[in-house]
Design a protein around this nucleic acid. Structure first.
Lengths: 130, 130
DNA sequence: CCCGTCTCTTGCAATTCGCAAGTTATTTCT
DNA sequence: AGAAATAACTTGCGAATTGCAAGAGACGGG
């Protein structure tokens, strides 16, 4: 197991102390890598199961997906509820804390569409394939 | 030398091809790490010189700062203009493309203030120290 | 001329990434 | 019933990245 601390119930004590009191730094401590926000994007798209995240076009490695989901749960952005017991299978969904990231994703979409050549929204891609 | 390719003039050909056409993924290809957006935050605060970025409370390592500034310049988010010739010294400033990240930073500030305990805005910190 | 400042660069150990293969426990074929 | 497929992870490991510390080059001042 990689990390995710002991008591995963409430995120009372932080695993990694804040780098600074700046809200940007604090947010980046949780979200600042190449994959985390992509998993959250998938959750906004309605994906809930492990295998669904793997089908996203970016191709997240399986070990990183498991790690990111565990961290997101540990930090209270995602809930993991069992939808069957044997074998244990879970559905991942955004908590209110996670859903509040919508403006962040929206801002990234706006910026990416305007400034990163080659990017397109799902709506535009749907039109193309028609 | 770490990376930053040869011709740093125009970002015509991308060093790393997009992971997918999704604007979120495309944005994260440029911004998705623990430091890049913090440097951009500093630029929004008006910092322009190498030494100024180093004084930020998060304490970015010097080699990473140099690397991030080079990448930001290579991807057209930041301009590097010499303000003296001997020894060569440069001032880093945001391009319009970089300034367009303001909504992203703003969204991160809003989310961090609401959901990351221990974070405070500069205004709040100023009041405290009074 | 020696010292301090500023802006990076270089070395290197430790962490993280990403690819691939292995595991466990079913459900679906045949 | 036995074989094969599926779902959800875990494990191994080489390669890339991080972060700490020290070094380097170019002045400016005393």
């Amino acid at each position: 197991m990689n990390r995710s601390s002991g008591q995963s119930g409430s995120a009372s004590r932080r695993a990694t102390p804040l780098r600074s009191p700046c809200p940007v730094a604090g947010s980046l401590d949780l979200l600042g890598d190449r994959w985390t926000l992509l998993v959250i994007r998938d959750l906004f798209w309605g994906k809930t199961r492990y295998g669904e995240f793997l089908t996203s076009p970016e191709g997240i490695p399986t070990n990183l997906l498991a790690d990111r989901l565990a961290r997101l749960e540990a930090s209270g952005l995602v809930t993991r509820v069992p939808y069957q017991t044997n074998p244990p299978r879970h559905a991942y969904t955004l908590t209110p804390k996670g859903k509040d990231l919508k403006p962040v994703l929206a801002a990234l979409v706006t910026w990416g569409k305007r400034h990163v050549p080659g990017t397109k929204t799902r709506a535009e891609l749907a039109v193309e394939s028609a």
